[in-house]
């Protein structure tokens, strides 16, 4: 218990003092996970909308795949990405194994199914009459899509929060494809695992505290936007 207390204290101290190494790790964490979330949203919401409104052969099967993807273990995603990105793998010539770019790809693969699946559910949740209304008003496809997104924005925000929560907390994939290289591909989660293995529990708890605070701040921001919309 004392360890936990000291760790949290240490975490607060690290933030207040602005330790440059910790700052670098934190910034990289935000950058990679933020970008991965953004990409998943850009791809996932349009795709989810299409899956939700169009009917075609294999639709349910496809949706079931994305729903399964919500439970994609980060280590499995990391392993797949590794196999593709290794020097002698199919995309080896890109030379991006053990780089932040590789971590971004892995995190995108983790977040994307979440965003798609949440988007499908939230857009399908819109009352059928609204679909009819929008169509009756003669909306173009793009307008139709934008109106649907607007209608479902509260639940879509939940999709964004879920996607971000998944990637900022994952460690398996980042460790595998990023390599936890000091000053280069080390993020808060991989640093925490390493400090535990070094026996520096206090530092590990401090990093964990920092990560939690960061997640809280971002989620708070997103929730604030969401709830502001809700109260309109």
């Amino acid at each position: 218990m004392e360890l936990l207390f000291n760790g949290i204290k240490e975490g607060i101290r690290l933030i207040l003092q602005g330790d440059p190494e910790i700052l670098e790790v934190t910034l990289l964490t935000i950058r990679i996970s933020g970008l991965a979330t953004l990409l998943s949203v850009l791809v996932g919401i349009p795709l989810g909308a299409v899956l939700a409104v169009k009917s075609f052969f294999g639709k349910r099967f496809l949706i079931s795949l994305f729903n399964t993807g919500m439970g994609m273990p980060p280590t499995v995603a990391g392993l797949w990405v590794s196999v593709f990105l290794w020097r002698y793998g199919p995309f080896g010539s890109l030379g991006i194994m053990y780089t932040p770019a590789a971590m971004l790809i892995a995190q995108f693969i983790i977040a994307c199914p979440l965003v798609v699946a949440f988007s499908v559910a939230s857009i399908q949740n819109i009352k059928p009459q609204i679909h009819e209304q929008i169509k009756a008003l003669g909306a173009t496809r793009l307008q139709y899509f934008l109106l649907l997104v607007r209608e479902a924005k509260l639940s879509l925000m939940a999709a964004v929060i879920a996607g971000f929560g998944a990637v900022i907390s994952e460690v398996g994939a980042s460790m595998m494809v990023g390599g936890n290289i000091k000053g280069y591909s080390r993020v808060l989660t991989t640093a925490t695992v390493m400090e535990v293995s070094k026996g520096n529990f206090e530092v590990a708890i401090a990093l964990g505290t920092l990560l939690l605070m960061l997640t809280y701040l971002v989620t708070l921001l997103l929730t604030w936007v969401q709830q502001k919309e809700a109260s309109r």
Partner: peptide, 18 residues
Amino acid sequence: CNNAEEPAAAPSEAPVEV
């Protein structure tokens, strides 16, 4: 979503110095 090389890799290259 499956391979994700070019589309996802490209934007990261500028900010993270690959």
